[in-house]
Amino acid sequence: MLTRKQLELLDFIHKRMQRDGVPPSFDEMKDALNLRSKSGIHRLITALEERGFIRRLAHRARAIEIVRLPESLGGHAGAGFQPQVIDGDRPDARRPAASMEVTGGAVELPVMGRIAAGVPIEAISHAARNVAVPDAMLGRGGEHYALEVQGDSMIGVGINDGDVVVIRETATADDGDIVVALVDGHEATLKRYMRRGNAIALEAANPAYETRVLPEHRVQVQGRLVGLIRTY
């Protein structure tokens, strides 16, 4: 049995992970539940973990995995629950890069090659394959595509080497967004976007990688992270 606050927090984390592909920060959780300090969030997180509803991943910031949901939030008794970890097997046939086919509540998105979560790699602009994505993950609509992650610079927000990220096409970003950034017109990288005056900081989520601060004319935003697919 969960308390009202525990249930509110679990519901908030679940909805944010479905919308953004990554868990909310402790500050965001505190504000959402109208708590005065983050210590209350720590206690609620610990209680949810002890009851088997979430799992915290060691040595990673903001790394929370929902293991199951109570029936009041749409879960099933005894069943595991992984809202952002979905089957990413390759389909038998390739489709054109521009295609987005809706089939039974899922959308076929083109996987446009690899994106570096580490040292930037040469940008890739052709579809290697398609992947089926739940249409609920795409939220407000717009054009979307997928990229396979190469590297470990974003492991602090739960994005691992080999994951497939779902990207909504956009040329703009807000501070804190995880974006596909094109550097100097030919290097593509997945990083957290932060504006610093007339410069753009591309921040990793791994202390092994330094933040790159570049003049804004050298950085073009190609899209924003909205979902994550993991294939085991």
Rank of each mutant, 00 (worst) to 15 (best):
H14R: 14
P24D: 06
L57K: 02
G40V: 02
R56W: 01
G40E: 10
P70F: 04
Q18E: 15
Q18L: 15
E71H: 00
E28K: 14
H59Y: 03
R60F: 00
E28F: 10
L69V: 00
R60W: 00
F26C: 03
R43K: 14
G40H: 12
R51S: 10
I45S: 07
I41Y: 02
E49M: 13
S37V: 11
S25C: 04
R36C: 10
S39E: 14
R55W: 05
K15G: 12
K15I: 02
R16N: 07
R56G: 00
R43L: 14
M17L: 13
G40M: 14
L9T: 13
H42Y: 14
F12V: 09
G21M: 04
H42C: 13
I64E: 05
R16H: 03
A63Y: 00
E50A: 15
R36W: 11
H59Q: 08
R36S: 13
S37H: 15
P23W: 05
L33I: 05
R19S: 03
I54Y: 10
V22Y: 04
G21W: 01
R19M: 12
L57N: 04
H42S: 15
H59C: 04
D27G: 08
S39D: 12
R62P: 07
L10P: 09
R36I: 09
L10M: 03
P24R: 01
M29A: 15
P70I: 00
G40A: 12
D11I: 11
S37Q: 08
F53L: 06
D31M: 15
I13W: 01
I66C: 03
A47L: 08
L69R: 07
I45A: 14
V67Y: 00
S39C: 14
F53T: 03
R55T: 14
R36V: 13
Q18C: 15
L35N: 03
L10D: 09
P23D: 06
A58I: 12
S25E: 12
L10Q: 11
V22P: 02
I54Q: 09
L57S: 06
H14P: 01
I64F: 03
Q6H: 14
R19W: 06
M17C: 12
L9H: 08
A32Y: 11
N34M: 06
Q6K: 13
L44I: 15
P23L: 10
E65N: 04
E49C: 01
A47K: 07
H59N: 13
A63D: 08
I64W: 00
H42V: 10
T46C: 04
Q6Y: 10
M17Y: 04
P24K: 05
L10I: 11
R60T: 00
D27A: 11
I13P: 10
I41A: 03
D20T: 09
N34T: 10
F12M: 06
E49T: 10
A63M: 05
A61M: 05
R60S: 07
R19I: 07
K38N: 11
L33Y: 07
K38I: 13
A58L: 13
R36N: 15
E8G: 04
R60D: 00
F12E: 10
L57H: 08
H42P: 06
E8Y: 11
E65S: 11
